[in-house]
Design a protein around this nucleic acid. Sequence first.
DNA 1: AGAAGATATTTTAGGCCTAAACCATTTGGA
DNA 2: TCCAAATGGTTTAGGCCTAAAATATCTTCT
Lengths: 163, 163
Amino acid sequence: MSEALAIREKHDGALAERSSVRLWLRLLSCTMAIEKDVQRRFAAHGTTLARFDLLAALDRHPDGMTMGALSRALLVSNGNVTQLVQKLAKDALVAIAPSPADRRASIVRLTQAGRADFAALAAAHHDWIDGLLAGMDAPAREQLYQALGALKRAIAKGQSLGS
Amino acid sequence: MSEALAIREKHDGALAERSSVRLWLRLLSCTMAIEKDVQRRFAAHGTTLARFDLLAALDRHPDGMTMGALSRALLVSNGNVTQLVQKLAKDALVAIAPSPADRRASIVRLTQAGRADFAALAAAHHDWIDGLLAGMDAPAREQLYQALGALKRAIAKGQSLGS
DNA sequence: AGAAGATATTTTAGGCCTAAACCATTTGGA
DNA sequence: TCCAAATGGTTTAGGCCTAAAATATCTTCT
């Protein structure tokens, strides 16, 4: 409860006049709504989105990844990867091996259990997202996808300029 | 560095086949990119997005808000509001008064300093968002806004069904 | 009035995340 | 060769956030 059913936009009132701010607030509220829902479902399975993301990255790299590669792939800090990997290793979902080439680096791989775990979660995750977006028909989804593509390009342009 | 310039989508490879998942990942990556940028800028001003959101809510309610009202307005947990408000109170940006009507409740208001602080931050925030979205022209922004409206409705429908 | 339930809030334990300081190893010159 | 800079990781301190338990105070029903 108290988890509002309707997706409300923060700052809905006063300051949302400028179109870019209004757009940003709507983007944020939609994303948060979906993300919280997904988080809740992962929690019900005893895991989290961050752990899932890490397993997903490893699943795509059967030869393993270094900590740094994980950090770059997941767009999170190095220290964060250290934390997550250590906990996943404790749960025996990933294995950490020293890199033969570089004694500073270690290579993280999925274990058998990790691979199985991920496969099950990935299937469920698909279904959750499909369910959440079921209210949009395919053309509407495609249109949003394209519009986000434009945003993505705009952001890249804006960021390269810095500020 | 290492903060990728191009906005990459997590899971870009394997599992992003289904259109709804692909859409979700793009939505998430765009939102995160903007949010991290905004967070960084707030940090440079010695504050955070969460604090700003709280001040913004209070700015729109000159008579003050209870903790519970803040929690609902910001879509965050009650305990989180407690934390934020206590820190903002320590910084003298908000004041906490007992509710005359209900001795359980307290009423949080902006102080003069809080109001001034917020006004300055809000102006800066506007400009940051405007800058970030400058790469999109007005029609493109409007189109994305509308497409997100469809998503918003779809989510609301989906959530009311539960799962 | 008195007890049972509903509300408003805080506390606790824990997960995610970051920046900055720090250590170890590798690399690229002078 | 040898050292300075770069690179790979971990640690530390701290901020955000949540769910669940605990408190205190209404409210409501009998």
